[in-house]
Computed example of a mutant assay.
Amino acid sequence: MAAKVKCSHILVAKQSESLAILEKIKKGEKFGKLAKEFSIDTGSGKKDGNLGYFTKGMMVKPFEDVAFKLQIGEISEPVKTEFGYHIIKRFE
């Protein structure tokens, strides 16, 4: 397992929103464009959802568990945390 990963995410308040955005991604819309448009994470949302590199212990556990299991280029199903619903894309 990787010591660190590089991911982007889209964070929204409702599960229904996350599922609708995931459908848009599956239909070919760009992850970064959707992050800018819909993500409520004002920091990463402006950067196409880019969170940069992080190691274990830096993110909340449900998010981290999924991020470290994704393959490079893979996009997660919605992940619920205390902050809302995340769609995660792993880059490295």
Results as ranks from 00 to 15, higher is better:
Ser44Tyr: 04
Gly45Gln: 01
Arg90Ala: 02
Ser16Ile: 14
Gly84His: 06
Ile72Lys: 13
Glu74Asp: 09
Lys14Met: 11
Lys46Glu: 07
Glu64Asn: 03
Gly45Arg: 00
His9Met: 05
Glu17Pro: 02
Gly84Met: 03
Lys4Gly: 08
Asp65Pro: 05
Ala3His: 14
Pro62Cys: 06
Gly52Ile: 12
Leu51Asn: 02
Thr55Ile: 02
Leu51Gln: 09
Ala2Gly: 07
Lys26Arg: 15
Phe54Glu: 04
Ile10Pro: 01
Leu34Tyr: 04
Ser8Trp: 02
Asp41Gln: 09
Ile40His: 10
Val60Trp: 04
Ala20Asp: 07
Phe83Trp: 15
Gly57Asn: 03
Tyr53Ser: 08
Ser44Met: 14
Lys80Gly: 08
Phe38Arg: 09
Ile75Trp: 01
Glu74Ser: 11
Ile72Glu: 12
Glu64Arg: 00
Thr55Ser: 06
Ile10Asn: 03
Lys14Tyr: 14
Gly52Thr: 10
Glu23Ala: 10
Lys6Ala: 05
Gly45Met: 08
Ala3Met: 12
Ser44Leu: 01
Ser39Glu: 12
Gln15Pro: 03
Arg90Tyr: 05
Lys26Gly: 10
Gly43His: 07
Pro78Tyr: 06
Thr55Asn: 06
Phe68Arg: 00
Lys89Phe: 01
Glu77Pro: 03
Asp65Lys: 15
Lys69Gly: 11
Thr55Asp: 01
Glu92Asn: 07
Ile10Tyr: 01
Leu11Gln: 02
Gly73Ser: 12
Asp65Met: 06
Pro78Leu: 07
Ile21Met: 10
Gly32Cys: 08
Lys4Cys: 11
Asp48Met: 12
Gly84Ala: 05
Phe63Leu: 12
Gln71His: 15
Ser44Glu: 07
Met58Gly: 06
Glu92Ser: 15
Gly28Gln: 11
Met59Val: 08
Ile21His: 01
Tyr53Asp: 09
Met58Ile: 08
Pro62Ile: 10
Val60Glu: 03
Lys26Ile: 10
Leu34Asp: 06
Phe63Asn: 04
Glu29Leu: 12
Glu23Val: 09
Glu23Lys: 15
Lys24Gln: 14
Glu17Thr: 02
Lys30Glu: 13
His86Trp: 11
Leu34Lys: 03
Lys47Asn: 15
Leu22Tyr: 06
Phe54Gln: 02
Gly49Phe: 02
Leu51Lys: 08
Lys27Val: 04
His86Arg: 01
Ala67Tyr: 00
Asp41Val: 13
Lys80Trp: 05
His86Leu: 05
Glu77Ser: 14
Glu82Ser: 14
Phe68Gly: 03
Ile40Gln: 10
Ile87Gly: 02
Ile72Gln: 13
Cys7Gly: 00
Ala3Arg: 15
Asn50Asp: 15
Ile75Ser: 09
Thr81Trp: 07
Phe54Asp: 03
Asp48Ile: 11
Leu34Met: 14
Ala3Gly: 15
Phe38Gln: 12
Ile40Ala: 03
Ala13Lys: 14
Lys33Ser: 14
Ile21Cys: 00
Val79Gly: 01
Phe63Ile: 08
Gly28Ala: 07
Ala2Lys: 15
Phe54Asn: 03
Tyr85Lys: 07
Val66Ile: 14
Ile75Met: 11
Ile87Cys: 01
Glu64Asp: 09
Ile21Gln: 04
Leu51Ala: 00
Phe31Asn: 08
Leu70Ser: 07
Phe83Leu: 13
Leu51Met: 08
Met58Ala: 15
Lys56Thr: 00
Gly73Lys: 04
Lys61Asn: 10
Lys26Leu: 13
Lys56Ser: 00
Ser44His: 13
Leu19Met: 12
Asn50Gly: 04
Gln15Glu: 14
Glu37Asn: 12
